[in-house]
Design a protein around this nucleic acid. Structure first.
Length: 306
RNA sequence: GCCGAGGUAGCUCAGUUGGUAGAGCAGGGGACUGAAAAUCCCCGUGUCGGGGGUUCAACUCCCUCCCUCGGCA
């Protein structure tokens, strides 16, 4: 980003209307969208991720959508690198980039950067997972605690995924994760940003979620899941853990009744939205809007200043 | 109508030999540094269907009424 204009970021929980707002801006401003969504990056996963349609993407350029196959890896660090590069490209062609999405960690990583740390190593993680499978996460936590008590005390002995990452960092670098975090701490924004966040009354948001899940089923989510399985993508993949796919795999492979699967998708999506809202409350300074119309007006206000 | 089984937290249910109740799910709050749509932490008072009785004490025993679900009519 070349200086003066802050990078516009639009976030909010799932089903809060981000896509709708963005589309209303199309044609009125020279904008291009950088998606900050950890699941829309996957090809073939369109319905449950509520990806903008191809026609919508034609009206308004979207980036970081459909960039990976479902069995490929992506992460916050990669997102930061890609988003910065693409934002610069957009600016260089005289357009305005807008980062839009609900993956809080990606946005946080984009704004503050991540601590100096190694990227993941599949071999090491496999070993760690094995260890935890046979000895339990508490045993693994004990070991982490021996190497880096400061980081261990911050997490629960049951938090397998963080134990794995921190042990991985130690094994790869010989350094303590707490020390690596020390010099970082998400203290200084590395980027001039203007964050707009859609919030919403819980009850209304939950209604929108329920309705949208029903729409996804009507749009053929079951078939889409079937297609992914037939294409050979294993249910164990990270991408297949996404809301919707996970549940419909249970329906297709384990005989869970569709109705039950749908209820679970709704429930888990509500839980997810709640976690997003908790995240948004505490992580970066932002302008907060309580319905999509206000958010639209807000973002137009920002764009009009350009 | 008769015979069984039940009526306990928003829902599904536990509740030991009587000492005024607790799990899962739902719901709420929180954490979050390359898996983040992941992962993890915290939060349980409700006329124990109504009314009577026995008892120092009843969700727990007795009586009665109401309701639900099976079966037989």
């Amino acid at each position: 980003m070349n200086g003066t204009n802050p990078l516009i970021i639009l976030t909010g929980p799932t089903a809060s209307g981000k896509t709708g707002i963005i589309l209303k801006l199309a044609g009125k401003y020279p904008i291009e969208i950088i998606s900050a969504d950890s699941m829309q990056i996957y090809r073939g996963m369109d319905i449950a991720t509520a990806k903008p349609t191809l026609e919508e993407q034609k009206i308004l350029p979207h980036h970081l959508i459909d960039i990976m196959n479902p069995d490929e890896e992506y992460n916050a660090g990669a997102f930061r690198k890609d988003a910065l590069r693409i934002a610069a490209e957009i600016v260089s062609r005289g357009h305005i980039p807008i980062v839009a999405g609900g993956t809080g960690l990606y946005i946080k990583a984009l704004i503050f950067g991540l601590s100096e740390g190694p990227t993941r190593s599949e071999e090491i993680r496999e070993n760690l997972r094995d260890f935890i499978r046979t000895n339990g996460s508490h045993k693994a936590w004990d070991i982490l605690n021996r190497h880096d008590p400061d980081i261990a005390e911050k997490i629960s002995p049951a938090d397998a995924s963080r134990i794995i990452r921190y042990m991985e960092m130690i094994l790869l670098t010989g350094e303590k994760p707490s020390a690596m975090h020390e010099g970082h701490g998400f203290r200084e924004p590395k980027l001039n940003v203007r964050v707009l966040c859609i919030s919403m009354e819980r009850e209304i948001l939950y209604e929108r979620i329920n309705r949208r899940v029903d729409e996804m089923i009507a749009m053929g989510l079951v078939d889409e899941t079937k297609r992914l399985l037939e294409a050979g993508y294993s249910p164990g993949l990270k991408s297949m853990q996404a809301l919707g796919y996970k549940h419909l795999v249970a329906h297709l492979q384990d005989g869970l009744p569709v109705g039950d699967a749908v209820s679970l998708v709704k429930r888990d999506t509500r839980h997810y939205a709640k976690r997003q809202m908790t995240w948004n409350r505490g992580h970066y300074g932002m302008d907060r809007f309580f319905n999509p119309d206000d958010a639209l007006a807000g973002i137009q206000g920002v764009l009009d200043q350009r």
